Amino acid sequence: MPENHSSRDIYADDLVVGEKYELGHHTVTEEELVDFASRWDPQPFHIDSAAAEGHGFGGLIASGLHTLSIYQRLAVLRVDGRWKAIAGRKIQEAVFVRPVRPNDVLTGSMVITEVSLDDRSRGRVTTAAELVNGEGDIVLTATAVVFLHSRGRTV
């Protein structure tokens, strides 16, 4: 947590534009990669090593949806349930910069880029995020909007 949040609940009005949250790490195993894709994105370059070799990526790669899911998990774990979330609103943009491969260790960061409070005791929070692999190469950039409760302040 950034210094000014300690361990208390975090409302939209507590967040400051420019705050940066460093995320934890996640190792993408081949089993996880293939299992996710088999269930949700069963394209050959995600689920079949032999087919993936000849596809242009030179081997298995994770589904973009899997990569987004990893980011979501790391972000939620980072705020540790302290954000007084109402719901996600939208993913404004997701860019899959480089493929994620088996055994990649992903980490990254999330930055608060906008906080706007409304008269319904909630705030709209926009974040910009990136995930990088173990070599420090960006694999994902994403911009998302979430609604958080506010402390009841109106604008």
Rank of each mutant, 00 (worst) to 15 (best):
M1W: 08
E3Y: 11
D9E: 15
D9F: 14
D9Q: 15
I10H: 04
I10N: 02
I10E: 00
A12S: 12
D14R: 06
Y21D: 01
Y21W: 15
E22H: 07
L23K: 09
L23I: 10
L23P: 11
G24T: 00
H25C: 05
H26E: 09
T27F: 00
V28P: 15
E31K: 13
E31L: 14
D35S: 13
D35C: 01
F36Y: 15
F36S: 02
S38Q: 14
R39K: 15
D41E: 11
D41V: 10
D41H: 10
P42S: 10
H46Q: 06
I47P: 02
I47R: 10
D48H: 00
S49Q: 10
A51E: 09
H55P: 05
G56K: 11
G56F: 00
F57T: 07
F57A: 11
G58N: 02
G58T: 02
G58M: 04
G59F: 06
L60W: 02
L60I: 08
I61F: 10
A62Q: 01
S63M: 04
S63F: 07
H66S: 02
T67M: 05
L68Y: 12
S69M: 09
S69N: 04
I70Q: 04
R73S: 06
R73F: 08
L74K: 11
V76W: 08
R78N: 12
R78L: 05
V79D: 01
W83R: 11
I86S: 02
A87E: 00
G88R: 08
G88Q: 08
E93S: 15
V95G: 08
R98E: 09
P99R: 02
V100H: 04
L106V: 08
M110T: 14
M110L: 15
M110V: 15
T113F: 10
T113G: 07
E114M: 13
E114D: 14
E114I: 03
V115Y: 06
V115Q: 05
L117M: 01
R120K: 14
S121M: 05
R122D: 12
R122L: 07
R124I: 03
R124A: 07
R124W: 08
T127G: 04
T127R: 14
T127A: 10
A128V: 12
A129I: 08
E130K: 13
L131K: 06
V132R: 06
N133W: 03
G134R: 00
G136V: 08
D137S: 08
I138C: 05
V139R: 02
L140T: 04
L140Q: 03
L140N: 04
T141F: 09
A144K: 14
A144F: 07
V145D: 08
H149A: 10
R153S: 05
